[in-house]
């Protein structure tokens, strides 16, 4: 089985702090991570590899430093890493991104494509489904569990109030939720192999076939009209009291706000 996992390198939003004066995000020194939904998708692919044998290719589009995210994926056990990077790709919205990723995927053998549901820095949840449309593949989004049945997959597709069990033929594309699993750590030998024995392939515009109208900022139909920062919440008040006193204070405050 050939599996492609699409990942994105994102700033670790749990580490992002707000500038108390301007109220904007402080991005300096914020570590980059593999987007959590994508990482669970990668874990699902690696589990399939262990269970039935598979070749796992990790694909990302991003600036040159996104290579680190691919190395991390290799260190977790992925077999091949491809970085799509080119000035021509810059400024892409979800449409241009999915067009570019789909163009790269057309060059790779696959039975299953996995993408995380959405990235924590954009939250659109559009790129995965768009790739499936460009490639004319069946897609199942919001997957929280995955089993194989011959060459078919049995997927648990989550809804707010329940789930569907879906049987789907391969090739197909699924988008995964981080609740799906607890991704493994990189291993010591995995990290050393990722740098010493594995390569990250770097693909640019010349390596894929794509209509230039679908590329980068120019090929992005999304136009940002205005962006603004939400007002920061004020800091809470800290009480250092015993639990009885704390309960009393909580009840008082809730009454003050007419919550109870």
């Amino acid at each position: 089985m050939n599996i492609i996992v699409c990942i994105k390198q994102v700033p670790d939003t749990t580490e992002v702090r707000l500038d108390p004066v301007t109220g904007t995000l402080i991005r300096d020194g914020v570590p980059s991570i593999i987007n959590p939904d994508d990482k669970s998708g990668l874990e699902a692919a690696l589990k399939l590899k262990e269970e039935m044998g598979a070749k796992v290719t990790v694909l990302t589009m991003g600036p040159p430093q996104a290579e680190v995210a691919l190395r991390e994926a290799l260190a977790m056990g992925a077999d091949r890493g491809i970085l799509l990077t080119d000035r021509a790709f810059a400024g892409a919205d979800t449409w241009a991104t999915s067009c570019t990723l789909a163009a790269a995927i057309r060059k790779i053998d696959y039975d299953l494509i996995i993408a995380g549901r959405q990235a924590i820095d954009g939250d659109t949840a559009q790129v995965g489904p768009q790739i499936a449309e460009h490639l004319g593949l069946p897609q199942v989004s919001y997957v929280e569990d995955l089993k194989t049945e011959g060459d078919k997959l049995i997927l648990k597709r989550m809804f707010e109030d329940g789930y569907h069990l879906v049987r789907v033929n391969t090739p197909c594309l699924i988008t995964t939720l981080k609740e799906m699993n607890e991704p493994r750590y990189m291993s010591v030998m995995g990290i050393l192999d990722a740098y010493r024995e594995k390569e990250v392939e770097v693909w640019g515009l010349k390596d894929i076939e794509i209509d230039s109208g679908n590329l980068g900022l120019q090929g992005s139909p999304t136009k940002v009209k205005k962006s603004f920062t939400k007002g920061a919440k004020t800091a809470g008040k800290l009480y250092e009291v015993d639990s009885k006193e704390a309960a009393k204070i909580i009840v008082e405050k809730l009454k003050e706000k007419y919550i109870i």
Partner: peptide, 14 residues
């Protein structure tokens, strides 16, 4: 080295 940086990251997570 890049290797050491990634190892350190993994050691810390673990």
């Amino acid at each position: 080295s890049k290797e050491h940086v990634m190892l350190q990251k993994m050691y810390r997570e673990f």
